[in-house]
Design a protein around this nucleic acid. Structure first.
Lengths: 208, 208
DNA sequence: CCATGTAGGTACAGTGAGTGAAGTTAATAC
DNA sequence: GTATTAACTTCACTCACTGTACCTACATGG
């Protein structure tokens, strides 16, 4: 339909090979999540997932480093998005309020299928571990961003890491504890962070 | 030497069987940590650890659920200690300042061998995961303690969990980031928590 | 449009963590 | 002194994950 002049660099149409690879990956992740929730994580073997996706078991590991990783197929993309949002603010924005708005928009991207994953997540240690690694990537991103704005020094490094861990801790808690009661994580996170950090998280409150 | 009248309940001398079991466990953990740091985590097999301790590989798993768990043999006892300290305060102590003092004393129990573990810990994902599970136990303990003092409600539950996660996040960050620079974790944690939570963590500062 | 490199996949064989079951021995209980 | 049972062993098994060699179809440039 749309013949493409192949260009040396990026931004051309994906080639047939690339599409096929992505499709295989997507299919593996989809069947993995489906099987995990239908029959349980431990009751599902990698062989089974691969078979459902119509590839060999070996191929599974060409796409995901571990069985658990297939439950978080868009992890890297989400972290990248977050980092982009984090650095997207006007030059002299207060970094904490920029952080807050990056977190806020982050909640909006939650797909409904995430809910399925949350259930699995709370039950299966391997998946909790995988999710915790996710958190560490966010923490690193936040710490790096804060250090960038506050300047490099031992003191800021420790402070930045502490704040990053604390913030992600609050987000995780409101998502899991709050999620169980149908509380809006955006409002809860904002309120708690506001009490902890004061003004930068204060206003506007974006409350529900 | 000391013949013991066996009593039905606790607090008698440990029997020979109990002693043997503890000794096997201790030996397994010791050799595990030694081998992990001498030749690397992935280069050490459970078989090897068991052989070094003079038992069969199967026995290893009668003492530890996973290979990684052997690197944290005193985990449960430490958490128990922490919980005890947490609830040891005078009846109407401010829960946050009680939390703070429980954390403070916690740092003192650090054995020198912990340092070896920290190095391993930062390098090996499996051990990081194991440590993160540790953190979750502390978080649960803190959240439960806060809820106990603040009363049960959805709001306090979310808040308590958020604060617990945040506090542990700060501790983890000061231990790992601060540890690299030889910063005293007690002082750094106290200072950061003080800025975050204000008065309850304020005074006395216990600075180095 | 053809030659050729290569990306995505397969087949096979292996390692090592972790589990279930049945058996051995020696401390303990009665 | 006999019966229990806790700690351990042996054996056989499953399954996650890896290394290697190979295959095949798409891609690319001459």
């Amino acid at each position: 339909m749309e013949p493409v002049a192949p260009s040396k660099k990026a931004d051309r149409q994906p080639t047939s090979r690339e599409q096929q690879r992505l499709e295989t990956r997507r299919s593996l992740a989809e069947h993995a999540i489906r099987l995990f929730s239908e029959q349980g994580y431990y009751e599902t073997t990698v062989e089974e997932i691969a078979a459902a996706a119509g590839v060999s078991a070996r191929t599974f590991f060409l796409h995901f480093p571990t069985k658990a990783a297939a439950a978080f197929p868009d992890h890297d993309a989400r972290v990248q998005d977050f980092i982009t949002r984090l650095h997207a603010g006007a030059p002299h924005t207060n970094p904490l309020s920029q952080l807050r708005s990056a977190l806020d928009t982050g909640f909006e991207g939650e797909s409904p299928s995430r809910l399925v994953r949350y259930r699995l997540l709370s039950e299966v240690p391997e998946l909790r571990d995988e999710d915790a690694r996710t958190d560490r990537d966010y923490e690193k991103a936040i710490a790096a961003y804060l250090i960038l704005h506050w300047g490099e020094s031992i003191e800021t490094e420790v402070r930045a890491n502490a704040i990053a861990n604390a913030v992600i801790g609050v987000v995780r808690a409101t998502l899991s504890a709050g999620g169980a009661y149908g509380i809006d994580p955006r409002a809860a996170t904002a309120e708690i962070l506001w009490r902890m950090f004061g003004s930068p998280f204060e206003d506007p409150l974006h409350s529900v």
